[in-house]
Design a protein around this nucleic acid. Structure first.
Lengths: 147, 147
DNA sequence: AAAATAAAGGATATTTTTGTCCTTAATTAT
DNA sequence: ATAATTAAGGACAAAAATATCCTTTATTTT
């Protein structure tokens, strides 16, 4: 469905959401190892997600690393796809036609329409936080409970 | 969702289903033009779909070309994906995890599960013929009516 | 038999995606 | 100030996907 690049982006962001906070940032080594992705390549992806007040926050130097602000946590997963310039795949025609619409439908349009809508809804309505929380219900993270 | 190769495979097969018969075969030039794909590349794809009693039938020489047997018409669209070795994408984990299951779910598993099932069902239950017929309802082909 | 037609197949080229490595910049601790 | 740490960024490499071209084989027509 998505490119490896986007898969890494999703996995990394969700991992950071689960395990980090502004007080406890994560290094690229830990992240890449945890999500099983090539380190330098993942670094590039995080750079992209970090650029111009993006989804992920980062700080350089000792004690630095990546984390997700609580505001970012509430953003829809689709925002990750958008930064990776792959949110297009959600609405794309299954047969790859550039002009495929209600007025000019491809042969699969009617059959695929409903699924496409659900896909868009899923990524639009699901927040990063929700996924992080879901994951924590199954495999609890080591993120310290706040009190 | 799919690679260009698979998109061309789907478009070409559906086009052939609509416009060809054993008595009226189609040449690669017509097909590539009609589905808006690079000719030689499409030829390779058709080769693959034709190989060892595959989905598409072909005959060389004058009057030759590609066509779909009525038996092939009744095959599910998933068979095209299978030949293109891309049927895996339907069941694949959205986050690209190799081990993602009910027992070891990825963070999106629960949310995506239903959509994945629908996707699989769609490609399994829809036949090439159905799509060709759907398309004909909108843009009638020039396929001569049989009587 | 020869010529013409059309797919099959091999070799190669181009582009995109994926991945690595090294240097630079920022920040902190000594 | 200096050294250590960590992300940012540029240049390059490898692999995969996409695309083109040319030759061969099968078939039909002349």
């Amino acid at each position: 469905m998505f490119s490896k690049t986007t898969e890494y982006a999703l996995r990394a962001t969700i991992y950071i959401a689960r395990k980090s906070s502004e007080e406890h940032k994560l290094g690229i080594d830990e992240i890449a190892k945890a999500i099983n992705s090539p380190k330098s390549f993942t670094a590039k992806i995080l750079q992209k997600l970090t650029a111009n007040n993006g989804i992920i926050s980062s700080v350089r130097g000792p004690g630095g690393g990546f984390y997700l602000s609580s505001k970012a946590q509430k953003r829809p997963v689709r925002d990750i796809l958008h930064v990776m310039e792959e949110d297009g795949v959600l609405g794309k025609c299954v047969l790859g036609l550039k002009k495929c619409s209600e007025a000019m439908p491809c042969p699969m349009h009617a059959e695929y329409k409903g699924i496409k809508q659900q896909l868009i809804q899923l990524f639009e309505h699901t927040t990063i936080q929700q996924l992080a929380h879901d994951a924590d219900k199954i495999i609890p993270s080591n993120k310290p409970a706040r009190h």
